[in-house]
Design a protein around this nucleic acid. Structure first.
Lengths: 143, 143
DNA sequence: GAAGATTGAGCACTCAATCTTC
DNA sequence: GAAGATTGAGTGCTCAATCTTC
């Protein structure tokens, strides 16, 4: 049980604070604009990338790091809002194909204009390009 | 409405992923060890730093970036578990002094041995000291 | 028995409304 | 009226149990 250095602890504290600050700012921007929360955006973006064939739920779980039960209820809500459809899966009777609808694509696009602006305000304006490259690279090694 | 660069977007994606991965790992470690969640730890640590005079709730709000209603119910649960006490505030009848109890200090200490080990496993082992210094510094400018 | 997915019950979060004291 | 704090009602998260298909 090796103890973490002061620097390691400081990294975690600052990582948690930065995440919390940025996330609440983004969520507030989306809500103020009448958009669905960020978790919906993540799902819709993945589905849009998958195209008409749709995506399996367990694939989304891995990509978005979500537990099964959370994704299941998240999909319920998004489907109820009309932004995705559950279709039967030909080659596996247990599963289903999740397909984004036209209105789903539209709301994702609208949300992106709000979302991207919030990212620029909370991150882009605050750090230099070299810092950003370094930051993204080091962070990638942590997940 | 300036658009964010690809690097800026990548920083946010990796920041969110790293945070999610590290946080769930830490929470799992705490739960497996029979410890309260991380939010309790944050409150208890701040109270321990304040000593016998205790801390005002609105001060915790600022330090922990928590909304009023969330902190209020968080304090309820921690108090019910016997880890803190709400005492009258002499100079302000609206507020109260939040004071950590002996068992609160004990559980915070026990939780730290689990928590610190999890930090070392998820962060310390994965990045170099120079990367860590740089990371902490840049992250600090984001919150 | 394992994998994909859902569900019931309990707990935590959220918002707006409220209360008390300043 | 503003600041510190709490609360009711609605929503979302969590865990374990469950169901179906592989």
């Amino acid at each position: 049980m090796a103890q973490p250095s002061k620097i390691t602890v400081e990294v975690w504290i600052q990582l948690a604070r930065a995440h919390q600050a940025i996330l609440s700012s983004i969520e507030k921007s989306l809500k103020d604009a009448g958009m669905p929360p960020l978790s919906w955006y993540d799902v819709l973006l993945e589905l849009e990338r998958e195209g008409n064939k749709g995506a399996r739920a367990f694939v989304l779980q891995e990509k978005l790091l979500l537990p099964q039960y959370r994704l299941s209820r998240l999909i319920d809500r998004i489907e109820k809002a009309g932004y995705l459809e559950r279709l039967a899966c030909d080659d596996d009777g247990r599963g289903q194909r999740l397909v984004i609808t036209q209105s789903g694509k539209a709301v994702r696009k609208d949300a992106w204009s709000i979302y991207s602006d919030a990212i620029e305000q909370t991150i882009g304006r605050k750090i230099s390009v070299p810092s950003g490259k370094m930051l993204a690279e080091v962070l990638m090694s942590l997940s």
